[in-house]
Computed example of a mutant assay.
Amino acid sequence: MSELLSGGFTRTHMTGRVRPKAAWLSRMREGRFGCHSTDGESVALDPTTW
């Protein structure tokens, strides 16, 4: 997954909390998320980071 995400990747939770790539991937590896479903309401891409 790390190779698929840009170095500037961030994940914004519906609560507004923003996690940088390393922190988000670390929590994923630890199994700390208990997501039962997801619905992609919006995706924002910044072409300057490609």
Rank of each mutant, 00 (worst) to 15 (best):
M1A: 08
M1V: 07
M1L: 09
M1I: 05
S2Y: 04
S2Q: 12
E3Q: 07
L4A: 09
L4G: 06
L5H: 03
L5Y: 06
L5V: 07
S6E: 06
S6F: 06
S6K: 04
S6P: 10
G7N: 08
G7V: 06
G7H: 01
G7Q: 05
G7C: 02
G8C: 05
F9L: 00
F9I: 01
F9Y: 04
F9T: 00
F9Q: 01
T10D: 00
T10C: 03
T10F: 02
T10L: 02
T10R: 06
R11Q: 07
R11D: 11
R11F: 09
R11I: 05
T12A: 01
T12D: 01
T12L: 02
H13D: 12
H13V: 02
M14T: 00
T15I: 00
T15M: 01
T15L: 03
T15F: 02
T15P: 00
G16T: 02
R17D: 03
R17Q: 07
V18S: 01
V18I: 00
V18T: 04
V18C: 01
R19P: 04
P20K: 11
K21W: 00
K21V: 00
K21Q: 01
K21S: 02
A22E: 15
A22D: 15
A22G: 10
A23Q: 13
A23S: 13
A23E: 15
A23M: 08
W24R: 07
W24L: 05
W24C: 03
W24I: 04
W24E: 03
W24H: 08
W24N: 01
W24F: 09
W24S: 01
L25Q: 04
L25Y: 04
L25N: 04
S26A: 15
S26T: 08
S26H: 13
S26N: 13
S26G: 12
R27L: 11
R27Q: 11
R27W: 04
R27K: 10
M28G: 08
M28T: 10
M28L: 13
M28I: 12
M28N: 14
R29D: 14
E30M: 06
E30P: 07
E30H: 11
E30Q: 15
E30V: 03
G31I: 05
G31M: 14
R32K: 15
R32E: 15
R32G: 11
R32A: 14
F33P: 12
G34L: 05
G34W: 06
G34N: 14
C35M: 13
C35L: 14
C35W: 09
C35A: 13
C35F: 14
H36E: 12
S37I: 02
S37W: 09
S37Q: 08
T38Q: 10
T38N: 11
T38C: 09
D39T: 14
D39C: 10
D39E: 08
G40E: 09
G40V: 14
G40T: 14
E41D: 12
E41C: 05
S42H: 08
S42R: 12
V43F: 12
V43H: 11
A44T: 11
L45T: 10
L45S: 08
L45H: 11
L45P: 09
L45R: 11
D46E: 13
D46F: 11
D46H: 12
P47Q: 13
P47L: 15
T48S: 12
T48V: 10
T48R: 10
T48H: 07
T49S: 12
T49F: 04
T49Y: 09
T49N: 08
T49P: 05
W50T: 15
W50A: 12
